[in-house]
Simulated assay, not measured.
Amino acid sequence: MQQIEHIKKQIQPDYLATIIYTSGTTGNPKGVMLSHKNIVSNVLSSIECFDFCDSNECSLSFLPLNHVFERTIMYIYLHKGIEVYFAEGMETIAQNLKEVKPVVFTTVPRLLEKVYEKIDAKGSELSGFKRKMFNWAVNLGLQYDVDPQNRSFLYNVQLKIADAFIYKKWREAIGGKIKAIITGSAACQVKLLKLFTAANIIVMEGYGLTETSPVVSVNRYQSSGRKFGTIGKVVKDVEVKIADDGEIICRGPNIMMGYYKHTELTNEVVKDGWFYTGDIGTFIDNTFLKITDRKKEIFKISGGKYIAPLPIENKMKESPYIEQIMVVGQNEKFVGALIVPSVDKIKEYFAKVGIQFDNEFDLSTNKDILKLVRTELNQFNQLFSAHEQVKKISISPN
């Protein structure tokens, strides 16, 4: 113990604690140098967001610990004395949730989508009155407003009925004791946020980067601290402002020491203590931070109009038949999209309308699939300006 105390005294807050490499989604991976001060300050800034769970409760962890998101969350769990169970593997998460019965776990939006897809698949197997109840509960959830003042007495009564017959089973499927799910790394569909919240499964969507240790903002557990479609309130000790070109910039004790052996890259993103995130955003009600796009992903079509792909992609992904989508069109006459279809959902649809689905289909050329996807896109296109509408699509062949 004396030796440990001696070593601890030698370590200063500004010393390097870890190097975590970025995912490289917008370039080559970079080694982000984080100090002890960076990490500890972010843990202390974020811990107030976890006031809903106590030291006698537990969590389930399955995201990689070599990413700063799960690493910092782990430190928060340790600080609060929350028990941590690790999933045996990605394929056993559903089983492990039932075994562990956590009150909280972290995830990414795609895994959350898969959770709902399983719930929806179970609902599709129902028939008669039970199927009608399931569909009614889903439609009720889609009308959910996080502000209790905007929910009528009748709506709240309906929520209780839906909870007794439908939503309770959703919670049981993920252990039965869940209070909140923390999600980040990408935008979560508002549709899912409404449905899970209506089922009393609070989804706390947040925002951060490896370079910010990572937490910048979080939607809180309390309803007054949440707003659908945003990434929540900025955590304490972190400053955020919107630059003249719309870029989100932030500063605080959580900002990285720099990129490992890349001083020139560090100087490009850290200026006068402010870290330039590369994300375009705004504040809603002067309180809730909202990302509108990635600065590097905005492009211009040949007519001179700028296109922000993110809101278009997020809206299109609300279709059950579209699993992934990438909006393109740099210097082209109009916007196009590369689409990965949801094969399972398309199979279900074809079965209902009497179209035979052949597993040997080339998805990119099948006329029925193209017609279905195009119909979905046309519905969503109406929500966008003429120059933002997806005019041409290409579907992944498998």
Rank of each mutant, 00 (worst) to 15 (best):
N219H: 09
E70F: 04
M33G: 08
L126H: 05
I307Y: 05
L193C: 08
K347S: 04
V43A: 05
I161V: 14
F288L: 02
D279L: 00
V373H: 11
K114R: 15
G208L: 06
G336L: 00
F288H: 01
K101Y: 00
F288S: 01
I182M: 14
V40K: 11
T92H: 09
Q158W: 06
V84T: 14
D120H: 14
A186K: 09
V216G: 05
A173T: 08
G278V: 04
L209H: 09
A164M: 10
W170D: 00
N366K: 14
G304Y: 06
G281D: 01
F69M: 08
V108D: 08
A187P: 07
A164C: 06
D285G: 06
Q222E: 15
K347H: 05
G229L: 06
I307L: 04
S152V: 07
V32C: 13
A337I: 02
F134H: 11
Q324H: 13
I322Y: 04
P341V: 01
V40R: 13
P148S: 06
M257W: 04
E57P: 10
K168A: 06
I4H: 12
E318K: 07
I255W: 12
G89H: 09
S394L: 13
S127W: 11
K295V: 01
H6I: 09
D54S: 13
Q189H: 09
V218K: 12
E83A: 13
P214W: 06
P109D: 09
Y260E: 15
H79W: 08
E360I: 12
I291N: 03
V216T: 15
C53G: 01
Y85D: 01
T292W: 02
N28E: 14
G232N: 05
Q189F: 05
I201A: 00
G252D: 04
S185G: 10
S23G: 13
I201D: 00
K300G: 01
L65A: 05
D14V: 02
F134P: 02
C58A: 11
I301R: 06
I249V: 15
V270S: 07
S223G: 00
K271Q: 13
Y21E: 12
N366E: 15
D285L: 06
I307N: 04
E268R: 13
I312N: 02
I280C: 04
T22P: 05
S41Q: 12
K9Y: 07
R226G: 02
I181M: 06
Y21D: 08
V218D: 04
K101F: 00
E99H: 09
A199R: 03
